[in-house]
Design a protein around this nucleic acid. Structure first.
Lengths: 333, 333
DNA sequence: ACCCACAATGCAACCGGTTGCAAAACTGCG
DNA sequence: CGCAGTTTTGCAACCGGTTGCATTGTGGGT
């Protein structure tokens, strides 16, 4: 039903090529024809069919946006930023919900069928088959919120989780905490592993510190609450905990409240992410801010760079984080 | 670079049509050819190009998913459900962030350029030009979380906001509150208007009730907090408030905590939505549950129905809500 | 006025599929 | 074995654009 090139051409009294060229950046058209075409096009309400042109140009401007984090409120902010920034660049996000249960393979096939120009994976855990498969299909992939590697096989943008671990450790030590807990995310998550490594590294240099470790089953409120409840039951509480992320911290906070412990009076808490809720008065979480806007900007930059030069070598970009001091740690001595 | 129909045809020693047919549901192909083609296809790793076929079939299986609610955590749940359900039906969500600042018109053009089969608008406020423009372009639209109308010009799925207002009113009255406040969302939002109408309707039938009204600037934490802070400053507090939605309630809760008021001791609060956070211990909000899963299922059903029969008359589907009793209202007397 | 370089245009083939149509290949049956 | 009826098949045109190439138009320089 929509108006096609041919109809515009007829109306303007020019060839179809002429019409095509007036809508193509940098093609050679005389001002006279251009004007005739534009007139005809606007009278008819013509819009070029992006999909048809993608057939010959090989560019769809479709970007697969894949995630499995549909339960962490941080990712609403992430989607917001991604969609806006992609739109600003004339790219269109094709959203894929990679819930754990379904087959990554099928999503991949689907993205190939729709000939996306590139793919952004926003998830701390990128199934390794993924990067391989996409590279094989010559589709650029950027892994946002991924793990640093000196020679990554796809572009990676993220934070220095090891350094974040160190920051958390230094912050807790500066507050004079002696008995300190690491309450990580899932044990197998690379983010957990790295944060723990940095954390332990700093701790191990200090004398007289008691360290305990435990891991939540997921980066979620429920998991954080459950794990903290377990710790409370077990007795032997630390004075302060570095939690895997903010939503985990908030879960832990809930468990503490329920048990009648005060924060930061009885127990200190530091999170990671600085999602919006962390700033809410009722939560007021001290945390490590992850610059998600820069991560996202950078991710899009990289995917665009890859579109322009597909032979680029994959790159890893790391952003530094900063402590956001709020009210869940005792003041400096 | 990907394998095309032609290559499979050559390899299988059949015509291109034969290959096309083996991949088309219900086309006539002999078992022998089908087998040859499938063998060749799988050896080559062939996947039909969905976009190319859309050119002739006129179906892209692309569904525009439009929203401007990228700040309300409820919508992460909404996106989760939408993406999963669309995927399950073989449809692909093309996500559009209709942030207030940019031009709805341009998003519309874009969706037309990508020839989406249909559009789902997940937002309480559907710009009216939108429905008109899409109808004109013969693109099915479903307005999720929209306002009921007996003869809507697009499909609408949502809740009965008037009835929700009544439920809230009845609940507060049953608790014996006498001085009651309506703390609505933005004054001009239809959801606010309807909820208020139902609320007032019930209240007006009762004697001896004092009613106050105020409106937050947005459905957001910050707006809820600001508005409740204003009320606190102004003195003259009600005993209980019906808040525009959960996130607004949580903002109000924060303002109350900050002012040292206890909930439900000093002030009662009832929200609307029952988003996941409402159930968190630290919040424990009594609220009215909106069945988002059913709303979403229904929305997709409607858009699919519209694809199958484009001449269908638009329909409005309303779902009923239910009170979820938690801890922000005083107990029944 | 003439020649040349270069810009603008149209033709036709192509992108990767689908599909109406007529021919070819099967069926079953007398 | 021949024939009608039904499937299966390939041809070729088409979907809505793009683009290489040859042709035509334009203007500048001398």
């Amino acid at each position: 039903m929509p108006i096609t090139l041919r109809e515009v051409a007829e109306r303007a009294g020019v060839s179809r090529s002429a019409v095509s060229r007036t809508f193509t950046e940098g093609a050679s058209v005389s001002p006279k024809t251009r004007q005739k075409v534009e007139a005809a096009a606007s009278e008819l309400g013509y819009r070029p069919n992006a999909l048809a042109s993608s057939l010959t140009t090989g560019r769809t401007k479709l970007i697969g946006l894949i995630s499995n984090n549909f339960h962490n409120p941080l990712f609403l902010e992430v989607f917001d930023l991604f969609t806006r920034s992609l739109q600003d660049r004339g790219l269109r996000p094709l959203l894929v919900n990679l819930s754990d249960d379904d087959d990554p393979e099928s999503s991949l096939q689907m993205l190939r069928q729709y000939s996306v120009d590139g793919v952004i994976v926003a998830s701390s855990t990128l199934p390794p088959e993924f990067s391989k498969a996409f590279r094989q299909a010559h589709i650029p992939v950027v892994h946002s919120f991924g793990r640093f590697a000196s020679a990554p096989d796809v572009d990676v943008v993220g934070i220095d989780n090891i350094e974040c671990g160190r920051m958390a450790a230094r912050t807790l030590l500066a507050r004079g905490y002696k008995k300190i807990g690491f309450l990580g995310g899932p044990r197998e998550a690379t983010s957990t592993i790295d944060r723990r490594a940095g954390f332990l590294q700093v701790m191990s240099r200090r004398q007289g510190i008691t360290l305990t470790e435990s891991f939540a089953e997921a980066y979620s409120f429920a998991a954080g609450k459950a794990e903290m409840a377990r710790l409370l039951d077990a007795g032997d509480m630390a004075e302060a905990y570095f939690c895997g992320d903010d939503v985990l911290s908030i879960g832990a906070l809930a468990a503490l409240h329920r048990a009648g412990r005060t924060v930061p009076g009885d127990v200190g808490l530091i999170g990671l992410n600085d999602m919006q809720m962390a700033g809410w008065d009722t939560i007021d979480l001290t945390t490590i801010r992850q610059p998600i806007d820069e991560i996202i900007r950078s991710s899009i930059e990289l995917v665009v760079a890859m579109l322009e030069d597909p032979s680029r070598a994959p790159e890893a970009r790391l952003f530094s984080c900063e402590i956001v001091e709020r009210g869940t740690l005792r003041p400096l001595p």
